[in-house]
Design a protein around this nucleic acid. Structure first.
Length: 423
RNA sequence: GUGAGUGUAGCUCAGCUGGCAGAGCGUCAGGUUGUGGUCCUGGUGGCCGAGGGUUCAAGCCCCUUCACUCACCCCA
């Protein structure tokens, strides 16, 4: 058995790669239409960055990160998400002194060591966007609008938007207090093993536990939405009315907590019922305290990530991979013809025509079969007879029409008569 | 980390109560001079995931291990 790739990672091969290119291209165009600029970031960061931003008690940090010591003894981690790195770069380069408002996006792989399953890989890809320096709920609504437009534009209509508010540093402590009071009424038997630990370490996470007895126990749990301070209420209200005015359907889900500690106020997730258990294809939220937490000024921010692997899986349920083709396949039957074919092949390729030729000495028949396999739109045939007349045969593979063309000025002739030239 | 299912040709899969390793698709060649798709013929292709055990005999039974898939968990 030859060497295989490691568990939970995969190769993306042609022709599927074309779908990835299409999706990424569409995402970039849309993000740039909305004023986002690309930022390219390292995949490696100091481990400390994620401990401080994502939170020590989260699943990501406590058991899913690829962390190692490099040869200099430094603790390095393969990034499990992008937001922390974007914030790090924003602070490291003092981008806020240039303009506190920055809209940045990045596309690339993330790494989490979880058990792989459908839609969940150890190396997975995200399209990530962040807005720094705007605290208005209008920007919350706008990035959600942009996301929903993106999915609609890809003809992905079977997705649902869920939104919630997690409050701010003013009102969240009061909810925490109420939540702790509520949780304290239960014995260890009433909650699952994880939640017994969470009730002290991260009580918010008990809310969206899916274990049956925990859901029973959480039946009458106070809703975070009842504890929001007036500012948070009006913020959340404006997000909702703005979305509603734009005709965007959403569900308020007060159990939507999300797995990273840094979220405040608006959080959202876009889900689908067509991907099995891993139903979130995009998620994000506001993180007004994170920049300060990482040593920067008190600047609000909001962002989201799209799971590209899942998005593409969903997309492919309704779209075929494009069938590869070449514009022309050249069959040259002897050595002098091959020499000429080679030059012609290069000349046409640099003009933007996809041309393949054959480099072997196989029969015309087998090469015609190959032309068919390559889905060649045209086949050029040249051999002893043609070369003697300074001509070649051009066959249209769909109509079966054949033309005899002079070799004089053939590149221009082909470009103007047979191929739609770019520009 | 836990559970269930599956590992046989490049791909999709048959293979009976243990008895010579199979099909379809793909690939390559041919079906009389230099013309494709359909059709016909032939060739190629395998450490039956790996290691051990039981047996005269193991793809099949037992143990171990690895991988994949799905689910739990978590998230994108």
């Amino acid at each position: 058995m030859s060497i295989q790739c490691i568990r939970g990672v995969k190769d993306i091969l042609p022709p599927e790669i074309e779908i990835w290119q299409t999706i990424e291209h569409k995402a970039k165009s849309l993000l740039e239409q909305f004023g986002f600029k690309e930022i390219r970031l390292p995949l490696l960061e100091r481990t400390e960055l994620f401990h401080r931003s994502i939170g020590e008690e989260t699943d990501i940090v406590s058991k899913e990160m690829y962390t190692f010591e490099d040869r200099g003894g430094e603790k390095i981690t393969l990034r499990p998400e992008a937001t922390a790195s974007v914030v790090r770069a924003y602070l490291q380069h003092n981008l806020y002194t240039l303009d506190p408002i920055q809209k940045l996006y990045t596309i690339g792989p993330m790494f989490r060591r979880e058990r792989p399953q459908k839609g969940r890989y150890r190396q997975f890809y995200q399209i990530n966007a962040e807005v720094f320096g705007i605290d208005s709920p209008l920007i919350d609504a706008q990035i959600i609008f942009m996301l929903m437009y993106f999915f609609k534009n890809l003809s992905l209509t079977n997705v649902q938007l869920h939104i919630n508010s997690l409050g701010c540093r003013e009102c969240r402590p009061q909810f925490y207090h109420a939540l702790n009071t509520y949780l304290s009424q239960f014995n260890a038997d009433d909650l699952c093993e994880h939640c017994n630990r969470r009730r002290t370490t991260n009580p918010l996470r008990v809310l969206d536990c899916k274990v049956e007895k925990c859901r029973q126990a959480m039946k009458d749990v106070p809703s975070i939405l009842e504890f929001l301070c007036p500012d948070c209420v009006s913020h959340f209200q404006l997000v909702q009315t703005t979305l509603a005015n734009q005709g965007i359907d959403f569900t308020i889900n007060n159990q939507l907590v999300r797995g990273l500690d840094y979220y405040t106020r608006t959080t959202f997730e876009i889900q689908t019922s067509h991907l099995g258990a891993q139903n979130a294809i995009a998620g994000g939220g506001r993180y007004d305290g994170l920049i300060q937490l990482l040593g920067g000024p008190d600047i609000p921010a909001i962002g989201f990530a799209i799971g590209v692997d899942r998005l593409i899986e969903l997309y492919m349920q309704h779209h075929e991979s494009p069938k590869p083709y070449v514009d022309m396949f050249i069959i040259a039957l002897d050595a002098p013809s091959k020499k000429m074919a080679y030059t012609l092949c290069c000349d046409l390729c640099i003009k933007g025509i996809q041309v393949e030729m054959d480099y072997s000495a196989r029969s015309l028949k087998s090469l015609m079969k190959r032309a068919d396999k390559l889905n060649a739109h045209f086949v050029m045939i040249m051999g002893e007879q043609e070369l003697a007349n300074n001509s070649v045969i051009l066959r249209n593979m769909n109509t079966k029409e054949q033309f005899v063309l002079s070799t004089n000025g053939i590149v221009d002739h082909l470009l103007t008569q047979f191929f739609i030239t770019p520009h």
